[in-house]
Design a protein around this nucleic acid. Structure first.
Length: 636
RNA sequence: GCCGGCGUAGCUCAGCUGGUAGAGCAACUGAUUCGUAAUCAGUAGGUCAGCGGUUCAACUCCGCUCGUCGGCUCCA
């Protein structure tokens, strides 16, 4: 046996006997490292500790401090859980068990769904298996052999996976009597899995297809240290305090009432004010960018929905109503009226682009299980626009929208992710159209210099799109802005413009929203600010608080001065102690509390207290107004 | 739509294995006139989500419906 040379991350090299393992390599660097080692990486490929090294390579030892370590730990914990489940419920069939952002899950086909009481049993079993310190052993075997093995074990899902992989060989991992198909790598034995917790269970379709059988999924998480798990669970608890429905009730912004119907939002005065402020902001920003404000009707005759294709493709999601023996569809999208506006005149290339903007309220019949607070509702208002332009103008228009999104998200302080979705299997339009539009979207994304993901085959059936997603308090992503190319509508409605050649041409259409749905945006925004809206957006910007009734008259003067200055102000002259009033205003997350007592009355001013607890000294009312106006002007 | 959890006063929650409801806060009334996150006392408030079933008896058990939460699928 010869020696092999291994190059470490820092560029130094070591040599070990050929056929020795990654663990041996780690040991030769240091006993401490060997002890901490979880796995290794050979020329960029992740491998187990007992992987035998056969030739010269670059090697990295993965310890719990490596970025990949948590993934390995969680993946192994998923196996541990699966082993526990199989021992407790031998009938359960294994499906898949990957790691996800904050943990892992494993899907099982099992007659009786899991309930939270089962979690204790499973966790207990996992702890027991952990104590047994069972080694996880990798084996590379031929696919045929693997299929035979899993057939014997009665694991049809694994057989299906291996068959679909179509590889000559696959790797399996054994831990005691438990066997799983897995790419690896894994930690070397179950004894190293100490900190884990099962979080929730849920149904999940096999391979994500609702035509397939529903499997039972258990979500869990794992960490290296108990404290990390504790921190994670604490973070989840804290996040729940920012949940927009809770804040919506506490701040009296909105409600969703059983009586009115699921998924229908009722805005209370403060929520309606917030919405008004956002809409007002949007109208101004759109006008600045050459959009025209338009308004379409709430329902249109069914013939129009047939012409647009909605009746064929979107009927399940639409509400209909019959009046005078005429069927009408309540709009689920705003595009139709915009088509009619375009068609109301002959358009020249000189008129283009046309940008029609509408704060359009739409209704969609969403399936009951998908409704979710303000994030997913049945009636919502989009900041919708349809841009009709020549093919040559397309790129500029897309760039304009992306800039617009960036500008707006910056004002609200959002980080966002962008995704490009390309042509799906079921789609219409010519290859050239798709290519040109996809290229334009991609070009525009590249021009931003920002990262973006590509979702292959995830575009709309009528065109490719860019989606922009924001995160909620639990880091779940919600699509807000979207920019979609549409090849069907200009065609179906026979939209044309006269080009310089005097001939009629088909315009290109862009469908886009910036905030998406105002409802969803308010939901995300509420969680983003934890309800403490910046002064320019706060439904109530300041509240005048009196120390006692003796100062009511002066306090009312101050209140009127702020009102005259255009500040959204309230006054609290109730017969309560100052501390009580402060507490209440604080819980309502009001940006400015203006205290008025003896000192202020004689001095002719106010003592402002800011939401963050900061006291400002006695100052004149004018000065206070100036400070608040400064916040508003700077959108703080 | 599917899988699982939950649904008790406006809010947060008690209510053991069935014997027909309780607290704190909020609300209302009264007293207190009070300086930066809760003054004290009293009063009122619930067809226990709805409907049906089992039972002498159901908030407690069963079924269905509605709503909601966590997921899956779908989507702004």
């Amino acid at each position: 046996m010869g020696e092999v040379n291994l190059t470490l991350k820092d560029g130094s090299t070591i040599s070990i006997e050929q056929g020795k393992t990654v663990y041996d390599a780690a040991y030769s660097i240091g006993a401490g490292l060997a002890k901490a080692a979880l796995a290794g990486s050979i020329d960029g490929n992740m491998v187990d500790l007992n992987h035998k090294i056969s030739e010269d390579a670059n090697i990295t030892i993965i310890t719990d401090r490596s970025d990949e370590a948590l993934d390995i730990l969680r993946h192994s914990t998923a196996h541990l859980m699966a082993q526990a489940v199989k021992e407790l419920y031998p009938d359960a069939k294994l499906a898949i068990g990957p790691t996800i952002e904050n943990g892992f899950y494993y899907d099982f086909d099992i007659r009786k769904p899991f309930s939270p009481e089962d979690f204790d049993k499973i966790e207990k079993k996992m702890k027991q298996l952990m104590k047994e310190d069972i080694p996880l052993v990798r084996e590379d075997i031929s696919s045929d052999e693997a299929i035979r093995l899993f057939k014997e074990l009665g694991e049809p899902y694994k057989v299906e996976l291996i068959t679909d992989l179509g590889e000559d060989t696959v790797s399996i991992y054994r831990q005691g009597g438990f066997v799983d198909l897995c790419r690896g790598p894994h930690i070397s034995s179950t004894g190293r899995l100490k900190v884990f917790k099962l979080i929730s269970n849920a149904g999940a379709y096999w391979r994500g297809d609702e035509k397939n059988k529903m499997l039972q999924r258990i979500y869990g998480t794992a960490f290296f240290k108990k404290k990390e798990l504790g921190d994670y669970l604490y973070k989840l608890e804290e996040a729940k305090k920012r949940y927009h429905r809770k804040l919506g009730r506490e701040l009296d912004l909105f409600s969703i009432s059983d009586e009115a119907g699921a998924g229908l939002v009722i805005y209370h005065p403060k929520g309606a004010m917030l919405r008004h402020l956002i809409e007002d902001f949007e109208k101004k920003e759109h006008l600045k960018r050459g959009y025209d404000l338009v308004v379409g009707p709430q329902l249109l005759k069914v013939d129009m929905w047939k012409q647009s294709g909605h009746f064929d493709n979107y009927r399940e999601n639409m509400y209909f109503t019959e009046i005078d023996e005429q069927l009408y569809g309540i709009k689920p999208m705003n595009c139709l009226a915009h088509m009619l506006i375009y068609k109301s005149k002959i358009r020249s290339y000189r008129d283009l682009p046309k940008r029609y903007f509408e704060l359009g309220t739409v209704h969609r019949h969403e399936r009951t299980g998908v409704l979710h607070g303000l994030m997913r509702v049945r009636g919502f208002t989009q900041d919708d626009a349809h841009i009709l332009c020549t093919p040559e103008q397309l790129l500029d228009e897309i760039n304009g929208v992306i800039d617009f999104v960036g500008y707006v998200m910056d004002i609200f302080g959002f980080e966002y992710e962008m995704e490009l979705s390309t042509r799906p299997e079921k789609s219409i339009g010519s290859d050239e159209d798709w290519e040109r539009a996809t290229a334009a979207l991609k070009q525009a994304l590249d021009d931003t210099g920002k990262n973006y993901d590509i979702n292959e085959a995830d575009g709309a059936f009528y065109g490719p799109k860019i989606d922009i997603k924001l995160k909620d308090c639990l880091d779940r992503k919600w699509q807000c802005a979207t920019i979609q190319c549409d090849f069907t509508l200009p065609d179906r409605f026979d939209l044309t413009y006269v080009a310089s050649d005097g001939e009629k041409h088909r315009p290109v259409m862009l469908h886009r929203v910036i905030l998406g749905s105002i409802e969803r945006f308010i939901g995300v925004l509420t969680e983003h600010y934890a309800g403490a809206f910046p002064t320019w957006l706060a439904p109530v910007q300041a509240i005048v608080l009196t120390v006692s009734e003796k100062y009511d008259s002066y306090a009312n003067q101050v209140y009127n001065m702020l009102l005259d200055a255009g500040i959204r102000v309230e006054i609290d002259t109730r017969n309560e102690k100052l501390g009580y009033k402060i507490r209440e205003a604080q819980m309502m997350k009001m940006p400015y509390m203006l205290v008025i007592g003896e000192k202020e009355q004689t001095g002719g001013g106010v003592s402002p207290r800011k939401r963050n607890g900061e006291h400002l000294n006695l100052m004149s009312v004018d000065e206070t107004i100036e400070i608040i106006m400064h916040d508003i002007k700077n959108r703080r």
